[in-house]
């Protein structure tokens, strides 16, 4: 049973909050249900047929009583609704300085890419006390990254990025599994979630084999796949500039504005005709069957890295 620690321990402050909420709710469940059980048992004995009991003036309706047992439990649940929704909303609000780790799920393994280019499979190392944001993509079916010790999970859906963030604060080795049924080997698609002290994490990063940082790998792809032919410096084609693009609003053809986030950049690479930046021709080809999800993530990292420089830096 000692292994249960890998599942059930509270590795983050969020996990502790969820457990507190659950405990409080359990108490409410007991308060709402035990009277029913006790009264049923008491009535079944006391008012057994043929048994002497005071049955004078039974009632068969009492609107106020009924309204009250509709309203009171409801108000109680509303309190819990607010509490739970507040906790949930925090999950959508990652700090800006979070370490960005990319996740690619495929049947039946988890691949992780750290910003420095370190890659690992079925193991995720993170530093304690620092916020981490995972950007996740799937190569095939829907998976779901589940880290019970954080009380967190998020589906990984093909065709879009999903994300999740956390600050783990207790170093240790925890479980990491797939929670969404994904085919034959679903139940063995898992591994370890390893929280290390920041110093140990730095050491681990240093020891891991690295070819390139993510952004650098993306830069290589950017040249190799011909992106630079249109989007690069000196290109003659009228293509949108990418420097400083990330996080900025992009006016679209036909009205509307989107923020250039990870999802937008991904869609622009794979489904380029869907959201066309206003004022540019529809000439971008799709890279749907050319790039893997990992490569797309590297390109996204590269484009994100083009923050500095003049606004029209890439185009002359």
């Amino acid at each position: 049973m000692e292994n249960l620690a890998g599942w059930a321990s509270e590795a983050s402050a969020h996990a502790a909050s969820v457990d507190r909420l659950m405990l409080a709710f359990t108490l409410m469940m007991v308060a709402l249900s035990v009277p029913v059980f006790v009264l049923m048992a008491v009535f079944a004995v006391k008012y057994r047929r043929g048994r002497t009991a005071n049955r004078a003036h039974p009632v068969n309706r009492n609107v106020w009583l009924e309204v009250s047992w509709a309203i009171v439990p409801f108000l109680l649940t509303v309190v819990f609704f607010v509490w739970a929704t507040k906790l949930f909303a925090d999950l959508y609000d990652p700090p800006a300085d979070a370490i960005a780790i990319d996740v690619v799920a495929k049947q039946w393994m988890w691949k992780f890419q750290h910003p420095g280019g370190q890659r690992e499979i079925n193991e995720l190392h993170v530093p304690a006390g620092e916020p981490v944001k995972l950007t996740m993509a799937s190569e095939d079916v829907i998976h779901s990254l589940y880290i019970p010790a954080l009380r967190l999970k998020q589906d990984v859906v093909p065709g879009r990025y999903t994300s999740m963030w956390f600050t783990a604060d207790r170093p240790g080795t925890y479980k990491l599994t797939c929670a969404e049924f994904c085919g034959v080997d679903h139940s063995v698609m898992g591994g370890s979630f390893i929280v290390m002290t920041p110093a140990a994490y730095e050491r681990w990063l240093g020891q891991s084999q690295v070819d390139d940082t993510l952004a650098a790998a993306g830069a290589v792809l950017f040249r190799e796949r011909g992106c630079s032919g249109c989007h690069g410096p000196g290109a003659t084609v009228h293509a949108p500039p990418l420097t400083g693009l990330y996080g900025r609003p992009v006016p679209l053809e036909g009205g509307g504005v989107v923020t250039a986030d990870d999802q937008y950049i991904r869609d622009s690479i794979l489904l380029p005709q869907s959201q066309i930046a206003a004022g540019y021709p529809h000439i971008m080809p799709t890279f749907q069957n050319v790039l893997s999800e990992e490569e797309v993530l590297q390109l996204v990292a590269y484009i994100k890295s083009l923050r500095s420089g003049s606004p029209e830096g890439m185009r002359q």
Partner: peptide, 22 residues
Amino acid sequence: AVPSGIKVYNWTATLYKGHIEL
């Protein structure tokens, strides 16, 4: 939960002062 709760509490109240055959 509201309509479901109503049912459960009303059933319990139905047993009150009944002639319950086990």
